[in-house]
Design a protein around this nucleic acid. Structure first.
Lengths: 103, 103
DNA sequence: ATGTTTATTCGAAAATAATCGAACTGCCTT
DNA sequence: AAGGCAGTTCGATTATTTTCGAATAAACAT
């Protein structure tokens, strides 16, 4: 029975458009988002991006703090997903269009 | 008969998503874009944003170089418009959704 | 208990971006 | 030709972001 630890993320109402756009304006983070969009659920370790772990961790932090990505702990890894419903509720169509454009 | 000078802007095919998103991730630039979206055509001077002209000019430059805004000279002022068709062709729905979300 | 895996945090360095005043260019008016 | 107006460009400053290695934490396995 895996323990689920909640990670710090903004509430739906606190998600701001400019932070979301900033988060998505970085190519590495966009790549991360596209991969999550395709797979639904991806652990941090599953990204074979040639980059130190601390840098990658920074990008996940930006994605989380902007409200784009939700992460939950499962065992000793973090599973990432997109906050599709929250973003759709707050900024309808934005994430969909960006993901479609980025694919 | 006003002279129309063309200003440096990327071709449709050279517009990149991450530059567009970066351009829109700044609150001042978003405000500019929203005003143009509402009015259709706006001269640089018509923005009563409390900020030195050089700073404002910098933001227009970012918007232009990202492909979001087109500027043409008419007399001694610059008229700005959104590159809606180009953006729609390249990243369908993105600008619409962002403008709707930002309004 | 010790070690392993997964990922974060810390702190400092390097790269980008934003800000502003001053000087400049283009166009119009007189 | 001289002056005014709209914006840009230059150069310097500051602020924010990105990057990375080293140290740390949390969960699991042995």
């Amino acid at each position: 029975m895996p323990k689920h630890t909640e990670i710090q993320q903004p509430l739906r109402g606190d998600i701001s458009l400019h932070k979301v756009l900033h988060a998505l304006s970085d190519p590495v983070r966009m790549e991360i988002v596209l991969k999550i969009a395709r797979a639904g659920q991806v652990a941090c370790g599953a990204f074979d991006i040639p980059m130190p772990k601390s840098t990658l961790s920074h990008h996940f932090k930006v994605l989380r703090e902007s409200g784009v990505v939700a992460s939950r702990r499962e065992g000793n890894e973090l599973i990432n997903s997109l906050r599709f419903e929250d973003l759709q509720a707050r900024f309808p169509g934005v994430l969909d269009a960006i993901i479609a454009a980025g694919s």
